[in-house]
């Protein structure tokens, strides 16, 4: 078995996760799964950035690490906002359905 360098393995995995997350974001219908896919995409980008910082030499670059650290915290708060909005949308749609049903004109 030949040795693969860690920067190769993790870098390609980061790119793969990014592309997969993009596929989920474009190809899935549910809001919650779109949010999951966005998170996977973000993880892929973070992995790629940190791999670049790690693989450049013996010195590990702290600047991408700091950027990704902010990115992780921002991504969790934006996930929370997106989830709140998604729940809000679904509840509003359900309330709309209930109103329609009460009036006798059922949607769908």
């Amino acid at each position: 078995m030949t040795m693969l360098s860690p920067s190769l393995i993790y870098g390609l995995t980061g790119l793969l996760l990014f592309v997969m997350g993009l596929a989920g974001l474009l190809g899935c219908a549910e809001l919650l799964r779109k949010i999951l896919a966005t998170n996977i995409m973000a993880s892929g980008i973070f992995l790629f950035l940190i791999t670049i910082a790690h693989g450049s030499g013996t010195l590990i670059d702290p600047v991408p690490q700091a950027m990704v650290l902010t990115g992780i915290v921002v991504s969790v708060s934006s996930t929370a906002v997106a989830l709140a909005l998604a729940c809000h949308v679904q509840e509003a749609a359900r309330r709309h359905d209930l109103l329609q049903k009460k009036r006798g004109t059922v949607r769908r």
């Binding site: 190769l8 990014f18 790629f48 450049s56 010195l59 991408p64």
Partner: peptide, 19 residues
């Protein structure tokens, strides 16, 4: 993306020394 990552080019210079 993989080609752009793996293509030979000048090595990335980080900011570790400045920090």
């Amino acid at each position: 993306l993989a080609w752009a990552y793996l293509a030979p080019g000048p090595a990335a210079v980080g900011l570790a020394a400045q920090v």
